[in-house]
Design a protein around this nucleic acid. Sequence first.
DNA 1: CGTTGTTGTCAACACTGTTGCGCTGAGTCG
DNA 2: CGACTCAGCGCAACAGTGTTGACAACAACG
Lengths: 240, 240
Amino acid sequence: MSKPPLDTAASATASRSRSKRSGSQLTPEAIIEASLRIAARGSADAFTVRRLGEELGADPTAVYRHFRDKDELLLEVADRTLGEVLDSIPEGLNWQDRIRALADGSLAVALKYPAVASAMASRTTRRPNEFRVVELILGAVTEAGLSGTDAAVHYRMVGDSLLALVGQRAAYLLFSPEARAADESAWNREYRLVDPEAFPQITKAALELAGVSQDQVYDARVEALITAIERRAVELRGGA
Amino acid sequence: MSKPPLDTAASATASRSRSKRSGSQLTPEAIIEASLRIAARGSADAFTVRRLGEELGADPTAVYRHFRDKDELLLEVADRTLGEVLDSIPEGLNWQDRIRALADGSLAVALKYPAVASAMASRTTRRPNEFRVVELILGAVTEAGLSGTDAAVHYRMVGDSLLALVGQRAAYLLFSPEARAADESAWNREYRLVDPEAFPQITKAALELAGVSQDQVYDARVEALITAIERRAVELRGGA
DNA sequence: CGTTGTTGTCAACACTGTTGCGCTGAGTCG
DNA sequence: CGACTCAGCGCAACAGTGTTGACAACAACG
C-alpha cells in the first residue's frame, strides 16, 4: 500500500516490464541530475534545453521523449531540490525552529540552484516533496496553537512568503555582476545625494540604509512570520 | 531649484532647444503609455517589443531610439505604475493604515499591469517614484518608533515583502486559465486524497486549505509586516 | 545650398522552446 | 533464425524573443 509507483514521468520507462533497455542512455533520472548540475552553475541562462543537451551529450530535443514540457521538467527538478531542503531539517525542534530550519534550508538550496528557485518563485509543484513541506508547516502552526481556517491561512502565508523570499534572493544572484554592483552602489551614492527637503526620512537614514545586509532583511522577514503566528495564537488563547 | 529636468531617458528629446521636431511621432511618453496599454491587456506575452511596435503603429525597433534596452523601458514603465500607487494613497492616515494603503494600492496596480509587476518582483527601479515609496515606508516605521538600523532593516522588510507579494499575485494572473484551474482544483482534489497516515495534518486541514482565499492570505501577510514593526517598537520602548 | 545629426524602416542575427520526419537498433514473435 | 515493431534519438525546421547595423528621410544649422 505504501506507494503505487507514482505515475508521473517515470512511468514511460517503467511501463516496460523489464526495464533492461540497456541502450537507452537517457533516463528521467539522468536528465534531472543534469538539470541540477547546470542549474548549480549559477549563470542566469544556464538552464536551457540546448545546454541541457550539451550536458547530457545528446541532442537537446531528446529530452522531449521523457518530459512533455520544459515546464514539467522544471517542476520535477524543483521537487528534487525540495527534497534536499527537507533532508536538511533536523528532528526534535520546536515549531519556531522548524520554520527557521525550513527557511534556512530553502535559502541555501535556492542559492545553490538559483535558476530553479527564481523560476519557481510564483509556482507550485503539486509533487510529493511539496506535500511533505505542507505537512511540515501545518504541523508547526498547529503546534503553535492554530487550527482550522487559522492554520490554513497561516500555512499559506508562510509557504508563499518563503517561496517569494528565496526566489528574490535567487533572482538577485542571477543578475549580472554589473547590475548587482549598480544596485548596491545606489544605496551608497544616490540615496545620499537626495534632496533633504523632499526626502527627509531618506536623508536621515541614508547611512543605515547603505549598511543593511541581505541576511538582516532575511532574518526580519522570517521572524515576522513566526511573530505573526505567535500573535494569532495568543489572540486565540486570550480573549475572543 | 525644484527639479533639474531629470536627466533620465527624456533628455534625448529635451536636449533639443525647441522640441518642435514635428515629424517625430515617437516620444518616450507615447512609448511608455503604449506599454502600459498593452501591459493592461493582461495576457502573459503581451509586453513584447513587436507588440509594442504594433500598438504604436511603428516599426518595433524604433523604440531603441528612445530606450537603450527593453529593460530600461520596463523600469520607466514600472516607475510610472509606482506613481499610480502613490496617487492612490490618501493623506492623514496613521502609519499602519499608510502601509495598508500602500499594499492595497500596489496590489491593485499590479493586477492592472500584471506583466510589469511580475517582471519587477525582484527588481528595483532607482527612479523618482521609488524614492517616494522609500520615504513613505521610512516615515511609517519611524512614526512607529523605529530609528537607525531598525528603521532601515524594517523598511527593507516591508519593501521587499510587498514587492514579492504583489509580484506573486500578478504572476498567478498571468498563468493560463488551465494552469490556474489545475492549481485551484489541486486543493480540492489532490490534497483530500492524500494518505492519512503519512500526512495527518494535511488530512485534518484539507477542507480549510481548499477554502482559503487569496485575499485572506494577502491580509495575513500584510498584517504580519505591521505586527513585526509594532513588536520591535515595543521591544525598544520596553526594556532593551 | 551643403552638411550634420536625429529618427524611423528594413533585414538580419543569436537565441529561446518545440515539432515532425527519418533512421537505428533492440525486443518480440512466427 | 528471420522478419517485424516500435521506442529512442538525431536532424532540420518553425515561430517566437530581444537586439544591431546599414540605409533613407528629413529638420536644423552654417
